[in-house]
């Protein structure tokens, strides 16, 4: 009886220790915990960047020292549908005080969607150490951690693009080639099942920008949010492996991810490439391009016919 009690105590202690470890340790070295970030606020080699969707979120209180990037102007080109140009990217990074050896930590609202977009763009331009705050802004806030409205001032950095990583990005023609030749590539649609099946053109409240509804032929569907726990933190590596393996994605073949405009798929791109270490490219043209392109096949499981009401 006493023995059982002791074993029980030991088990409880082990469980507690495991729980504590999972609470503080991050799922990958590309993911930092809120605790880690709190301890590195004054680290001159760590630069924190907030990319939030809603205006005024950063301004009304951000993590001390964090720099604000506006996704729809800073991280894209305004007059070409494209990610930010190399010249503007260098200027942007330098203004934030980023050097080639700076650790850049992204976080944002809306489950880190656009923070992940920022991380993808930074990886594309070859920034070496790019990480994401586990649980994003919501977790930092929920833990009652420090926020400030003061603007950061960092000495300008000297970041220079050494090499871009074009393999992180694919275009319509690349995806079309995969679809038509049946190349050994997994295509992952990370939108909601209703969008994937073609029952709807866009999520509730979002502009319907495409002429066709459905998905890229051959694509499998794992909604982005299945990769995170209720508090927005990433699931464990084992859980994530299982999740994607359940639709046949195990990293043995290159992967293409897409969504509607490329923001939610940045999140899944991050999970698959930065946490699981798979070879993943993002098709940021996504459904707003594919569903509008002429002569491109789609799969529509719902039988939605465009134009008929």
């Amino acid at each position: 009886m006493r023995r059982v009690g002791r074993v029980g105590t030991l088990l409880v202690a082990l469980l507690l220790a495991a729980g504590a470890a999972s609470a503080s340790a991050a799922v990958s070295d590309k993911v930092v915990s809120t605790q880690w970030l709190a301890e590195h606020l004054d680290d001159p080699n760590v630069r924190i960047i907030e990319v939030s969707v809603n205006p005024g979120v950063y301004e009304r209180g951000h993590i001390p020292g964090a720099v604000n990037y506006v996704w729809h102007t800073d991280l894209v080109e305004p007059y070409v549908r494209d990610i930010v140009s190399p010249e503007r990217f260098e200027a942007l990074a330098r203004a934030a005080g980023i050097n080639n050896d700076t650790t850049v930590v992204f976080y944002g609202d809306n489950s880190n969607w656009f923070a992940a977009w920022g991380a993808w763009v930074f990886n594309y331009y070859g920034v070496k150490d790019v990480r994401l705050l586990d649980g994003g802004r919501a977790k930092w806030e929920a833990e009652g951690r420090e926020l400030t409205v003061r603007q950061p001032s960092h000495p300008p950095g000297n970041f220079t693009i050494e090499k871009t990583n074009p393999h992180l990005r694919v275009f319509l023609s690349d995806v079309l080639e995969v679809v038509t030749t049946g190349a050994d590539v997994d295509i992952l649609d990370i939108r909601s099942p209703a969008e994937y099946e073609g029952r709807i053109f866009a999520p509730e409240g979002v502009q319907e920008l495409s002429i066709r509804a459905g998905h890229i032929p051959g694509a499998v569907n794992v909604p982005w949010n299945l990769a995170v726990n209720e508090d927005g933190t990433f699931k464990s590596v084992e859980e994530l492996r299982e999740l994607y393996a359940s639709v046949g994605i195990d990293g043995s073949r290159p992967i293409i991810v897409y969504c509607r405009i490329g923001e939610r798929s940045s999140h899944s791109w991050f999970v698959l490439s930065q946490i699981l270490g798979y070879e993943v490219a993002q098709y940021d043209g996504s459904w707003t391009e594919w569903g509008n392109a002429v002569g491109v096949p789609i799969t529509n499981l719902a039988g939605t016919v465009w134009g008929a009401r």
Binding site: P55, G56, E59, V70, V149, Q151
Partner: peptide, 15 residues
């Protein structure tokens, strides 16, 4: 001053 330190950029203060 805290929300948008430089008003000359062409950006407007949020909302």
């Amino acid at each position: 001053g805290a929300f948008l330190p430089n008003p000359a950029t062409g950006r407007l203060p949020p909302d």
